[in-house]
Amino acid sequence: EETGVRVELAEEDDGEKIAIKLWLRIEDIKKLKGKYKDNEAIEFSFDLERDVPEDVAQEMVESGYVCEGDHKTMAKAIKDRVSLIKRK
C-alpha cells in the first residue's frame, strides 16, 4: 500500500546496535495531510528494545516535524520498517 512515506536505514545495521538511525522520507505529499517538501527526510534514532513506533511518531508531531493528521501513517511506516529489522 502506497502511503507517501518510506522509512529506511540511515546507517548500516550490523545486528549489534540497540539504537538505530532511520530516515522518515516523504515521497508523495499528495497522500499526506500536512505540508511537506517532496523527498523531505527526517532523521531519527530508534531504540529497538524500548521505543514504540506510535510514541516516536507522536514525538515528531509534538516537535512540529509531522502534522497530527499524518501521525498514524508515520507510525505504521516506522512499525513496518522496525519489524523487518527485528526479523533479521
Rank of each mutant, 00 (worst) to 15 (best):
G15Q: 10
S63V: 06
I18S: 15
F46A: 02
G64D: 02
M60G: 01
G34I: 02
C67N: 13
I20N: 08
D51R: 00
E54C: 05
D70V: 02
I78W: 01
S83V: 06
K37H: 12
N39I: 05
I85G: 00
D55S: 11
E54V: 03
E49L: 09
E27M: 15
A75V: 11
A10N: 08
I85A: 05
D80L: 00
S63R: 14
A57F: 00
K72I: 10
L32H: 08
A10Y: 08
G69I: 12
A19D: 11
G34S: 03
L84M: 12
D51G: 05
A19M: 14
A10F: 05
G4E: 06
V5H: 08
V66T: 04
G34T: 04
D38S: 13
I42E: 02
K30E: 13
G34R: 00
K31S: 07
W23T: 15
D70E: 05
K35E: 13
K72R: 12
F44H: 03
D70N: 03
A57I: 13
F44N: 00
S45I: 14
E27F: 12
E12I: 10
H71A: 14
H71C: 14
A75G: 00
V56H: 00
D47I: 01
V66H: 01
G15P: 10
G15V: 05
A41R: 14
D55G: 07
E54S: 05
V56C: 04
M74T: 09
R87Y: 07
I20G: 08
K79M: 07
D28K: 13
M74L: 12
V5P: 08
R81G: 11
S63C: 12
G15R: 06
V7R: 00
E12M: 11
V56F: 12
Q58Y: 10
V56A: 03
A10D: 08
K72V: 10
I29M: 14
I29E: 15
V56Y: 05
K72M: 14
A75C: 08
L22P: 09
E8Y: 07
I42M: 09
K31Y: 09
D13H: 10
F44A: 05
D47Q: 00
Y36P: 03
P53T: 02
F46P: 01
K33T: 08
Q58W: 14
E11W: 00
V82N: 02
M74W: 03
D13M: 12
D47W: 05
E49T: 11
K33N: 10
S83W: 03
E12A: 11
I29Y: 15
G64N: 02
A77V: 09
K37F: 04
E11Q: 04
D70I: 03
V66W: 01
E43D: 05
D70K: 02
H71M: 14
D51A: 01
L24E: 10
A41M: 14
R81E: 10
T73Y: 09
S83P: 06
K37E: 11
E54T: 03
K86I: 00
Y65T: 12
I85T: 03
A77S: 02
I26R: 12
Y65Q: 14
E16M: 08
V52N: 15
S63K: 15
E16I: 05
K72Q: 14
D55V: 13
F46I: 02
D14C: 09
R50Q: 12
E40N: 10
I18H: 13
A41L: 13
A19C: 15
Y36Q: 03
V66Q: 03
V66Y: 02
K37C: 08
L48A: 02
L22M: 15
L9M: 13
L84P: 06
A10T: 07
R81P: 01
I78S: 00
